[in-house]
Structures are given as C-alpha cells and as structure tokens.
C-alpha cells in the first residue's frame, strides 16, 4: 500500500496528542493538580491532535467536504474516527475553560475521564480503519488497533513526561512511558512475526476463479504504465529493506527513548534535554513504523497484476 505521508503524519502526531490527553485525563480523574502544568499539557496535546487532524485532510480530494465524513458512523470506522475526534474536543475545551477561568470549573475529574475515553476511542477507531480491511491481509489483524493504542499511549506518556519536566513537575509519566513503550514494541514484534508467518489467503487462481486453471501467468498487462490501482495498492519500495527499517523503528521508538528516560532520571539537571531527545526519537520511530505498516501491506487487487499474494513466506527472513 502506498504510504500517504499526510496520514502517517496524522497518526503519528495525533496519536501522541491523544495519548497525552489520555494520561492527562486519567491524572485529573485520579485527583491530579489542575494547575498550569496541566494546562500546558492540555494545550500541547491539543496542538498535536489538531495539526494531525488538519494534515489528514490533505490527502482528501475534496478537503472542504470533510465535514460529511461525520455522517456514516453506523457503518464506517473512518466516520466513527471523525465523530470520536470531534467529540473529544468537547471535554478538552471544557477542561481548557476550567483551567484558565479564575475559580475553575466543577467536575474536572469527570472531564478528565471523558477526555481519556474520547482520546482512546479515537485512536481505537483509527486502528480499526485498517484492521477491518480484509483486502489487506497484513492489516486484517486484531493486534492492529491495540498497536495503535499502545504506540499512542507510549509516545503520549513520553511527551507528557517532557511537558512535566519543562513545567518543573515531578511526575510518574516517565515510568509510565518506560512501561508502555516496551509493551508496544513487543506487540509490534509479535505483529511482525505473525505477518511474516501468515499463509497467503488467496492466489491468482482464486482471483481469476476459472475452474481447473493452473500455472496462471500474466501475458499482457491491461495498460502500458501503472494506473491508480497499481500506484496506490502496489507500492513495493520498502520491502527489500524491511528488516533494516524494522530495526531502525525499534531503535528509535524503544531503545533511544528508554535510554533518554534513564539518563533523565539519573541526571535531573539535563532531564529536559534527554526527554526532548527521547520524544524526537520516538516520533521519528513511530513515523518509520507507520511507513512500514503501509509499505509492507499488500493488497489483494495486485493479484490481477501477477503480484505475490499476502503472507510473505520467505520474502523477509
């Protein structure tokens, strides 16, 4: 599948933003201080979420019609994602008012709960957009939405730890990030093992359906140059480098941030610098992971063009 850069930026940035809002919401629910640090975190999360959502409209043919995507939540995970994203702005906006208005607002804990719920629902819907597509065997896994949640939670906790450090708050977010990131990376590892070992669900014989046909080969393509379907579904640039890129992704989203978290704990004077490095590395790491998520995914329609079907049997070893 062709990696749409605006979608990768969206899921990386908004994922971290929603992850941050999730932990912030839980902290407020648990009686965390509704102070300037909370306000700063709310705003940082809002900026990440909003930039991400805004960029996601860039891959649309008609961004001005994006509001229509809120209408089909009964059947469409993309529509549900939109509804959840818009709905999450309600507790976020009320919390903002509660934190800036003199005297505050009542029910900060409830708003925190709603913020955490909305953020996790939105990320879950994002993952389900991919996981619900049976046409892409590499995406059609129950693990996929959990991975989106895990990486959003891990990067969000990391950003919140950074914001806390800048605001001079001693928090547990570094510990949370140190637990969630390895869990998400382990799950990603399991995911890669599963897609590498998966059997191809369909081949050219099923695609063409001709009874008794064997040894099917492409004789003539239907067009001389790639069309939309081949460009969108047949993207194959990264597959040769998949092993190398997987290691890069894991190094950037796991090893470097964990090292940064440990150094920040050991050297409090340099905590902000180490956490900034950890955030930047994790961001790039998730970006690479998302890019691979697209580039390694193979679409069944490519069977008609003679492509190897899903399930990679030996391609990555």
């Amino acid at each position: 599948m062709h990696p749409a850069y605006s979608v990768i930026f969206f899921t990386t940035a908004s994922g971290a933003g929603y992850g941050l809002w999730f932990w912030l919401g839980l902290r407020l629910l648990a009686g965390g201080a509704a102070d300037g640090a909370a306000l700063a975190a709310l705003i940082v999360g809002g900026v990440l979420v909003t930039f991400g959502l805004f960029s996601s409209t860039f891959h649309l043919g008609h961004p001005e019609r994006a509001w229509r995507a809120l209408s089909q939540w009964r059947s469409s995970w993309l529509s549900r994602e939109g509804v959840a994203a818009v709905a999450t702005y309600v507790p976020a906006g009320l919390l903002f008012l509660g934190l800036v208005l003199p005297g505050g607002l009542p029910g900060v804990a409830v708003l925190g709960l709603l913020l955490a719920l909305g953020a996790s629902m939105t990320v879950w819907c994002t993952g389900m957009i991919y996981a619900a597509l049976r046409t892409v065997p590499e995406w059609n896994h129950g693990i996929v939405p959990v991975l989106y949640l895990g990486l959003a939670g891990g990067t969000g906790a990391l950003v919140l730890a950074f914001v806390d450090a800048v605001a001079g708050v001693d928090g547990v977010m570094g510990v949370v990030a140190g637990l969630v990131l390895p869990a998400a990376a382990a799950l990603k590892w399991v995911y890669w093992r599963r897609i590498d070992g998966a059997e191809a669900p369909f081949g050219m014989a099923e695609a063409l359906g001709i009874p008794g046909a064997a040894n099917i080969r492409v004789l003539d393509p239907p067009h001389t140059r790639p069309n939309f379907v081949m460009r969108e579904m047949g993207y194959a640039v990264a597959r040769r480098h998949a092993v190398k890129l997987r290691l890069w992704a894991l190094t950037l989203l796991l090893t470097v941030p964990i090292a940064g978290l440990i150094l920040a704990a050991l050297l409090p004077g340099l905590a902000i610098a180490f956490l900034a490095l950890a955030v930047a590395a994790a961001g790039v790491g998730v970006w690479v992971e998302r890019w691979l998520f697209f580039a390694e995914a193979r679409h069944l329609s490519m069977l008609y063009y003679g492509a190897t079907p899903g399930g990679r049997g030996g391609e990555v070893s």
Partner: peptide, 8 residues
C-alpha cells in the same frame, strides 16, 4: 482487460 496464459 488483462491477458493471461494458463493451463486448463
């Protein structure tokens, strides 16, 4: 319109 070779 694709064109394929096959054995039947």
């Amino acid at each position: 319109v694709h064109s394929y070779e096959m054995e039947i």
